[in-house]
Design a binder for these strands. Sequence first.
DNA 1: GAGCACTGC
Length: 772
Amino acid sequence: MPDLAQDRMLLPTYEFKQDLIDAIREHAFLVIIGETGSGKTTQIPQYILEEMPEIKKIGVTQPRRIAAITVSKRVSEEQVTSLGKEVGYTIRFDDRTSSTTRLKYMTDGILLREAVQDPMLNQYSVVIVDEAHERTLETDVLFGLLKQTHRLRPDLKILVMSATLDVEKFSDFFDECPIFEIPGRTFPVQIVHHQSMKIQSLKSNFVSTAVETAFYIHTTEKSGDILVFLTGQADIERACQEFGDKCKELNYSRDVKYYEAEYRDDDVRDVAIYPLYASLETMEQRAVFEPARPGKRKVVFATNVAQTSVTIPGIKYVVDSGFVKEKSYDPNTGMDALLVTSISQAAATQRAGRAGRTAPGKAYRLYSSDSYDHMPPDTVPEIQRSSLLSTVLALKRMNIVDILHFEFIDKPDETLVMKALTQLFLLGAIDHNGVITDLGKQMNSFPLSPYLSRVIVSSAIEHECSEEVLTIASVLAGDHDLFRAPSPRQGEDVVAEAEKCKLKLAHHTGDHMTVLNVWRTWRDNDESKRWSRDNWVNHKALVTAKSVRSQLIDIMKDLKLPLVRARRIEIEKSGRKKDGRSRETVREVDAVPILKSFLTGYYTNVANKATGRSVFSHYSPDQHFGEKTSHSSSALVALHLHPLCALSDMFDRNKTKYSQIDWVMYMQVTYTNKAVMKGVSKILLDWVRSGKGHERIRQLASANLNGESAKITSKKRKQLLADDSTPASSAESSDTDAGTGTDAELEEDRKRLRKLEIDKIRERALARRNLN
DNA sequence: GAGCACTGC
């Protein structure tokens, strides 16, 4: 049995133990830099535990659930206690702490939730924010909150731990606190740049270049596994294919001396090729983490999962394409853009570092060192490229009313904040003075987007169908697709079979009721994994939804919101003509109250379909008020159905359902090379017009949403709200109702504007990156 | 006809 106590003394942090303790005693804030393997995450909290008996409780945050679990397990072993006693962890759905817990690892989201309950964080004497360099949305908000808490509770110790060297920003933010540097224990990585390649020209062919480079490494470098960073599933599958083809050629020519000579290391002629991205089934992923068999070289084509979330043992060579797929939220259109962009220097460093975990390594960058020099030093923090709806609501809940002047380490764009405030007002979560309402408080209790929370509340108190809505919301809350799509490689029969399964489960009103159908059929089949597999349903999505659902039920009970089953209605179905009679009545859940509930949250996400076309255009309710408000800017973006949507014509070869679509609501829209909606159901426009929320649009202009009293005049606010980057033509067209002009003319307009909008979105996404 | 990565009382 290994001597854990002795191992601990061998870690780089050990020789700084006393200095660290002294520094923590002396200062309220401390920044600690420690590279991977320094032991900072496991050791420093233990030093405090052991050497500072006056400390009550230590909280350590991690950006990922897995890290919170594994680290706390390790530490409880080192402390020779069982997990959950002195040392424990808390993550969503899993609390392994008790009244005796003095060291608690948790996700940053948990601490954020706790801060809403108790802004003073009274249970903690020390709070440690780990992996601060990742700059997650939650960490950034915690920074601001912790600084505020410190003013009220000067005894609270706050430690920020980060891997990057560029931490002066953290220190500056926390009153220029001292920075402690702990040497890491990684191996040197030699960096090789493709000197004649500019990153701009690489963009069109980085996949093939990456494959060639990996192949070059395989044939010329000594043993050691290869990790190739690409951007997404499509890239990765193509790369695996191309690399495999190249290797086949090579094996075919084994007898030819020329090829033989290319091997520098005779032991690794054979390769095992692995794709790695998050949506891979767990089983398919597992093999990547096992060592390759002797004589084989592992070649892994991966997304950014491999940059932060998972570590693959044995990697000696890294190929860095220089690109990443990055999500950024556009407050003007309310759309998420998911675009391939070049990475930051910090990301490049992190990728290269993956080659030196167990031995000296080598990183091949597909771009020149000049291109590297021109990359932005840091990735834009998440808070500057996300919707701030939940964040702003949580801050308002903590009575932080003036969000625009909240102390963020990096301020989000004002448009981003104003958009969140506007939407929260439209949802009824804040009032005219920017103060949270009772409804807003209820909404904040749910671990969901404020849109979905609004829907749930409404289903309980207005539309009497919370049982069903809860189910649908639980599934939609996760971003797994409910159906799995077969790869075309599996053959036409399989594709057809999958489509048949989906058609069988699809509901004619769209995705919401389809979710309910799938859920109930899954329950009827004992929640069996086999049933999911056979019916091309994503089992994981349902299992996760099940725990979410029971969590939501607990919250409903706390809030005293009733759980009500939706009414059943009798529907006449034309059955088979067995005995000459063709009718049969069935009792079914009434879709109307359910869809109406969803509309209370998503009434600004409504689109209508151009006649005979597959394109939708966004509807702005204020068209009917004859005035233009901020959110009307997206009025003419062309929207497309995601192919997995129940209403997509993929399910309906005769396109009967499809042609009957007039108005729809959607839960989400993402722009990649066009704007694609997910979670789409048919609605009636009257439901929108008669909805409560609709009226709030009119009231918007006179509200002081940020809540800073009279600091911003209403004129100034209108300016802030107005989308001045929208082309004038689009602004005008959004004022005129779709009733004027012929269909053909409108279609022309839409086409033209769609192009403008798309260029704008791309431009803005890029501009935001370059700004920072 | 489409899927970067995380997360939540």
